[in-house]
Amino acid sequence: MPLSVHIKNASLEFDGRLLFDNLDFELSGGQWTCLLGASGVGKTTLIKLIADLVDNAQARAEITTSDGEPLKERVAWMAQQDLLLPWLDVLDNVMLGARLRGNVDDSCRDRAMALIEKVGLADSERALPDSLSGGMRQRAALARTLMEDRPVTLMDEPFAQVDAITRHSLQELSAELLAGKTTLLVTHDPLEALRVGHVLYVLNGRPARVSEAIRPPGNPVRTPQAVSATNLHSDLLATLAGEQLTG
């Protein structure tokens, strides 16, 4: 049974300014939830809050899970930067979690190799990150995320820094490999959200509020035609633009 996560009363004050307050939304078990918001609205802080990465007394959230256990150490994290360690090759980067926990063994290596192959980096396992293209680096980061095999995956605009074609294929690959996992994707791109999301939320306003859940018709990954057929793109853009204008 995939884990669902409920985020309640999330709020953050920064420099005496309330960035968001009393946010309430749910990550449905086994589905992709997309949180859309313009730059500066506090998306990254919110996703870090869920991942328990914010050491700030002014940030708080009540996070509950469907099995009643804490979420901490049950999330895999994929950030905007690939965060590959430049001194480790692709294989060692993919096994980073195991290295840090001190449990690298042959089965771990075999799993990492299989994931590297799955993300299309079969001949690059010994390459250092500097020798890889932006798309290949994100593929390696995706393999590292999958290697953690956590019930919840948190993705903070992971495809924002690659070109449109690479982004398209990475969205497809991620959706395929993370199918069945509870995933939260934070993005500023409505097209991306409509393409991969089962459920969409829009974060806007000052302080930011989260919209009602939007459930686009059809199943992800949606083709560009299916995305157009949802007729939601312009509405989402208008909501986001409204946020920027009033902000």
Binding site: K48, E73, V75, A76, A79, L83, L96, G97, L100, R101
Partner: peptide, 12 residues
């Protein structure tokens, strides 16, 4: 970002 990533991985 590396430190954050390590924290989510349960590193000491």
């Amino acid at each position: 970002g590396w430190i954050d990533l390590a924290r989510t991985m349960g590193a000491s």
